[in-house]
Simulated assay, not measured.
Amino acid sequence: MTTAPDDPFVTHRSLLFTVAYEILGSAADAEDVLQESWLRWAAADRSAVRDARAYLVRTVTRQSLNRLRTLARRREDYVGEWLPEPLLTTHDVAEDIVLAESVSIAMLTVLETLGPTERAVFVLREVFDMPYGEIADAVGKPAATVRQIARRARGHVAARRPRVQVSPSEQQEVVERFLAALHTGELQELLAVMAPDVVLVADGGGIVAAALTPIQGAGTVAKLLATANRAALATAAVWFNGAPAGRVEFDGEPAAVSLELADGKITRIYVVRNPHKLTRIDHPARLTR
Results as ranks from 00 to 15, higher is better:
residue 41 W to A: 08
residue 31 E to N: 10
residue 103 V to M: 10
residue 51 D to G: 11
residue 204 G to I: 08
residue 242 G to P: 07
residue 192 A to C: 10
residue 131 P to C: 11
residue 203 D to E: 09
residue 93 V to E: 03
residue 214 P to I: 06
residue 102 S to F: 02
residue 106 A to I: 08
residue 171 Q to W: 14
residue 151 R to M: 11
residue 100 A to I: 11
residue 83 L to G: 05
residue 242 G to N: 09
residue 80 G to V: 00
residue 278 L to M: 01
residue 181 A to M: 04
residue 215 I to Y: 01
residue 100 A to F: 03
residue 162 P to M: 02
residue 46 R to T: 09
residue 89 T to H: 04
residue 138 A to T: 04
residue 120 A to W: 01
residue 260 E to L: 10
residue 21 Y to S: 07
residue 19 V to M: 08
residue 114 L to A: 04
residue 130 M to A: 15
residue 180 A to W: 01
residue 74 R to Y: 13
residue 258 S to F: 08
residue 249 E to L: 12
residue 152 R to A: 12
residue 219 G to A: 06
residue 195 A to K: 06
residue 194 M to I: 07
residue 73 R to P: 09
residue 37 S to T: 04
residue 124 L to E: 01
residue 122 F to G: 09
residue 281 I to V: 08
residue 176 E to R: 14
residue 196 P to R: 02
residue 221 V to P: 04
residue 9 F to T: 07
residue 255 A to G: 12
residue 210 A to D: 00
residue 104 S to N: 05
residue 59 T to F: 08
residue 139 V to I: 05
residue 14 S to F: 03
residue 200 L to H: 00
residue 79 V to P: 10
residue 187 L to I: 15
residue 275 P to R: 10
residue 96 D to Q: 05
residue 181 A to S: 12
residue 102 S to T: 06
residue 258 S to V: 10
residue 116 P to M: 10
residue 158 A to N: 14
residue 5 P to L: 13
residue 96 D to F: 04
residue 182 L to A: 01
residue 273 R to E: 06
residue 27 A to V: 06
residue 252 G to V: 04
residue 128 F to H: 15
